[in-house]
Structures are given as structure tokens and as C-alpha cells.
Design a protein around this nucleic acid. Structure first.
Lengths: 222, 222
DNA sequence: TTAAAAATGCCACGAACGTGGTATAACTTG
DNA sequence: CAAGTTATACCACGTTCGTGGCATTTTTAA
């Protein structure tokens, strides 16, 4: 990993693009990258649209440092477009936004990292190396947000007092079967299924199959 | 942050419990913690059940280092139990398992960090400080898994060619309304709703309302 | 062992659904 | 402008559903 002297830094260097609307920050960022040995930033854009246009013709960079609050196409949408054109490119979000929604959407869209703009230059450079090493660079607070998002998935299994049999039959209904079909699947009489479903409706406080199915998904029952 | 000489290291020290079935690793871990200034490990258990019993009586630690592959109650289940007794305790998973499912379930259950057992002693100690600072310590590979999990959420909005109106009506049906109620809500004739729904069924390849609703949720339509 | 809960079964009836048509006005789009 | 799509609307028929009530057996808990 020892650094070697090399004239043309673009050879064997990590190639990074920057998409950032703020001129000063864009210059700072590209400057930081270009001053780092082993890295080059040959392109810096103010808007996703511009970067996408270039990406259609030229070969993709290794990493794209992407802002979220951009004029025109937002960074979130940009991620998907970039990934569509060059699935292998690593996209690291570098933004001021740290709300759960932005973080969630960016990561779902395929971002490989998420940094806040208050990160130190060292952290930013490190994150580029980290993402290429197969990691997922994140600020401490972002990592924390990520865990928050996960734990919000844990719907507390709201219990309507359904019996096992009732859950089983509800399961079948959720998958789209009619009462008759459910009865056949479970070797029961139609009337039995009917009775069970009656109780299910009572317990779930619904009176249509769609309402029941909806409740199952929304509250993560079964 | 300068370290001061103190006789009784349990005062003002970070208190950590260890739950790990392997005797040797348990000793190694508790030893490492006790040899670190500012940290103590007064309790180390081989099973979740034992730790839970003690937690019911004594005051909780600051951090629990928890294995997943345990005899008896698994660590995943343990997380929830620990959190139920002491919601504020930070739980850091320390395990050999790195499959998406384990990671996902552990984080959903409320873990504050996830390390692999090949982590260096320094990394482990750092992670304890990090979790108390509000962070979410993770191995690089775990962080990467987390992103994988996120991007797997991005259901590619499978398009069945539903028109806006059809989506709107489907929306209402998903919420449990009958055709007649939908018609009234949208100031339409029952027949119109009926016609739209017919096309929806065609396009979604279903023939029951429950099937349609189920498809909406499973494939994240609308 | 006795009471409660769960699972099974049946009947009947009106309401709602799924599916086959047909048809007209509006609004894209080439 | 012609062709296609979308939204609107209606009819009819057989099927399925939702709901009321009632009854028996098996399992679980007190």
C-alpha cells in the first residue's frame, strides 16, 4: 500500500465524480480529492441531469459523491438513474439532510454510503476508500438513524386474540382463496370456514375481506 | 477525557455484561473489558436465561455484549427480553453469524450494534464507547449487509399498466370499502366502479378482492 | 371434574361480488 | 383527422360473501 511516485495521476487512480450545487463546496470537494494521491476528480456537476448526460457517453467513475438537495432532479431520484446507467458505480451521499425519510429512501435507492457535510476531509477521503473496499461508510448519527429505522419495523404484533386455526384460515384468505377453496385446502366444510371467518371479522373489527387482508399487512399480523 | 487514577474502578465506570456460551471467549472478553480503564464487567453469563434472571433483581448494566448462537433462548429473542426489562440498555451483538436474516432480525429486535467475532480487541472496546456516544458500531461487512437489506426493499414498482383512476379505486378497495361505498366516495355510479375494478382484476391477474389487496401490499403497488 | 374456549358443522337470506356483454363522451397521440 | 385510450355508464346472471342463529365435539384451564 506504499505510495509510489507517478506522473499521470489518472492512471490507476480512483476516479470520483462530484454532484453538488453549491459552487464553493463543489470546488472544495473536488480540490480535496485531486490533492489526494491515488484519487482524481475529473468531473464535477451542479445538477444530476448534467452528470447523467455525461454518463451516457463516457465511462463511469468508481465513485459518485452526491448531494441530495439539488435543483431539478433530487439526489434520491438521481441515485436510481445513475444505477440504471452504471449499476456498478458506488454512490456516496454527502448532504446536510439527516431525517429518517431521506436516509431511508437514499439507501433503498441504492446508495453505498451516507455522510453528513460536517464530516472532516479525512472522513470523506476515508469513506471513498471504504466504499471501494466493500464497506458502507456512514456518519455515527446516520448509522444510528439506520438502526432507528430498523427498530421501527418491529411492529409490536398487535394481538386481536386470533386462535391458531383462525390465523391459518385468514392466511389462506389473504392469498386470495374463496371460502370454498379454503375449505377444500384444509379438508373442512364450507360452513366451518364460514364460522371461523365470522369470528375473525369480529375480532379484527372489519366486515369485508379486503379490510381484513389490509389489516393483516398493515399491522403485520400472522 | 484524561484518565485519572482511581482505586475503585466500578465507580463512574462503564458497566458491561457479557452473554456468551463459549467459556474461553467469555473469559477473554470479560478480561479485556476489566483490563480496560473506565470499564468493568461484573457479570458474564453463558445463557440469556441466566442474565435475564439477574436483570430482574439487579440494576441493569450500560451495555450488554450478546452472542446469537446460544443454547436455549437465542440471542435474537434475548434482545427483546432484555429491552423489555431495561429499555435503555444498549445491546451490542458479537457473533460469528453474518447472514442477512440474522442481521436484520437482530437490528429489528433493537440491537444497537453488530460486530463479528473476528473483530480486534480495540474495535470491540471502541464499539462500547461508540454505542454510548449514540452511535451504531458495525463491522464493515455488516454495514454492507445493512445496505443490501435496504436495497432489497426497493421493489421495482412492478407495473401492471393501471391507470390513475384504476389505482385510485383500488386504493379505496384496499382500505376495505365495498364497490357501492367507493362509488359514493368518488361520486361515481356503481357500474363505473364495477367496470374499473374488472380491468384491475384483469391487469393484476386476480379474481377476488383479497387477491387484489394482497398483491397491492406484496408488490408495493400504488 | 367442571366450566370455558376452540373447532367443527349446518341453514337461510339479503347484500355484494365477478363476469359476460354493450355503449358513449372525452382526451390523447400519431 | 383517425385511431386508440380512458372514464363513464348500464344490464343480467350466477357465485360468493356477510350475518343471523343453532348445535356438537374436542381441547384447555380452573
Amino acid at each position: 500500500m506504499k505510495q509510489t511516485v507517478q506522473k499521470d495521476s489518472s492512471i490507476n487512480s480512483i476516479c470520483i465524480w462530484v454532484v453538488e450545487d453549491n459552487l464553493r463546496y463543489r470546488k472544495t470537494l473536488s480540490g480535496l480529492i485531486n490533492r489526494t494521491s491515488g484519487m482524481v476528480c475529473p468531473q464535477a456537476f451542479a445538477r444530476c441531469e448534467d452528470a447523467l448526460k455525461v454518463l451516457e457517453k463516457e465511462s463511469p467513475p468508481d465513485v459518485i459523491m452526491l448531494d441530495i438537495g439539488l435543483p431539478g432532479m433530487s439526489g434520491i431520484v438521481g441515485i436510481e438513474k445513475f444505477k440504471l446507467l452504471s449499476p456498478k458505480v458506488h454512490i456516496v451521499i454527502l448532504t446536510v439532510y439527516d431525517d429518517n425519510d431521506k436516509v431511508f429512501n437514499a439507501l433503498c435507492a441504492g446508495a453505498s454510503g451516507y455522510l453528513l457535510k460536517d464530516s472532516s476531509p479525512e472522513k470523506i477521503i476515508d469513506s471513498i476508500r471504504e466504499v471501494l473496499a466493500g464497506g458502507a461508510p456512514m456518519n455515527m448519527q446516520i448509522a444510528h438513524k439506520v438502526l432507528e429505522i430498523f427498530s421501527s419495523f418491529k411492529t409490536k404484533k398487535s394481538d386481536y386474540g386470533l386462535t391458531e386455526r383462525e390465523k391459518e384460515i385468514l392466511q389462506y384468505m389473504v392469498s386470495g382463496l374463496t371460502k370454498q377453496q379454503i375449505a377444500e385446502s384444509l379438508f373442512l366444510s364450507f360452513h366451518t370456514v364460514n364460522t371461523h371467518l365470522k369470528k375473525v371479522y369480529l375480532k379484527l373489527h372489519v366486515n369485508t375481506r379486503s379490510g381484513a387482508v389490509s389489516k393483516v399487512y398493515k399491522e403485520n399480523l400472522l
